[in-house]
Write a protein that binds this DNA or RNA. Sequence first.
DNA 1: AGAGTGATGTCAGTTGCTGACATTAATTAC
DNA 2: GTAATTAATGTCAGCAACTGACATCACTCT
Lengths: 186, 186
Amino acid sequence: MSRWEPGAQERLSRAAMELYAERGFDEVTVAEIAARAGLTERTFFRHFGDKAEMLFANGGNFVAMFVDAIAAAPPGPPLEAVTAGLYAAAADFEPRRPFVLERQKIINSHTDLMERELLKLSALAEAMSVALRDRGVAEPAASLAGWTGLTVFHTSFARWVAATDGRTFESIITESLAELKVVAAG
Amino acid sequence: MSRWEPGAQERLSRAAMELYAERGFDEVTVAEIAARAGLTERTFFRHFGDKAEMLFANGGNFVAMFVDAIAAAPPGPPLEAVTAGLYAAAADFEPRRPFVLERQKIINSHTDLMERELLKLSALAEAMSVALRDRGVAEPAASLAGWTGLTVFHTSFARWVAATDGRTFESIITESLAELKVVAAG
DNA sequence: AGAGTGATGTCAGTTGCTGACATTAATTAC
DNA sequence: GTAATTAATGTCAGCAACTGACATCACTCT
């Protein structure tokens, strides 16, 4: 037993998600989030660097999924290793669809949050590029493949979020990859 | 003759660039920028939406260059229209290299500025996608080509900025495009 | 028992940013 | 030619994000 209710970070996350969904990101103050979590504004900033960060706090796992899949992929062309990462992500997202949609609705409704998301996505592209270089892929191929992976992920994700027909993320990625090869061939 | 010195926006831009370069983005207050420009903090925010925006204020022209080049490109595969946009941008950047490098140094030194830059770049990718759809390119090919254009631009730009051997932006783009085709072929 | 640790609270302060209203040269309306 | 309007700026008051310094106190280690 500790002096305070445990799980402060979790409570802050929940409170923030609820309030953002109820009233919109910039209609909610940090003090309100903290109050609903039974904590103080100052404590909020000890757990999250800023007001937006809580929506991206588990970004490390996200990147690791891609990187691990790339590292574990059998030898072959870089885009195939990246593809392994894409499928790993799709498998992770698919069962969490309701949560992911809710979160994305919040993000898409506010520019600051979109900025932050793009920063995280660019970090993903760079991490994939590094993972490819670790497999011996030279520049500029590694960076191009990393960013191409991001292109496929990002456009496929948008289609998956918008889909109303229950299509799987995986099938959208498969289609996008095929289409990309046609487009890139010029 | 008007009541005040003309060119307030220009003065604010210059003052900000100087101060950001001298002391770093977040060591400079808006009040200081305004004072150096002979204006008031309140006036600063009438010209620029926020402290970062001045570094991206001419982003409209930038996007327009790509979009116009895509619209004007002869009929052909989408990636060739995008390529026309890339070369147009390279021609625009090349003679302004010293300024571009200085600006990029500031941006790369601060996360908030990188976020904003990525937002502008994603707007570029979306604008290119729209321009391609206007030429009759279907989805998802249009989005994939637009974001692939961004991939080539962004990675080539980074190499051009880092280059110490005086290589031209155009030659880097040509090389990146060739490499991209190899990578995407899988 | 005493010392130390770690998560939280308290408080005061800076700064980005906004709304409401005032000012006044230049312009336009009559 | 005077009056009304406009446009760019100034003044002032205030909110909310974020930070640093220091206090608290259950728990743990020695």
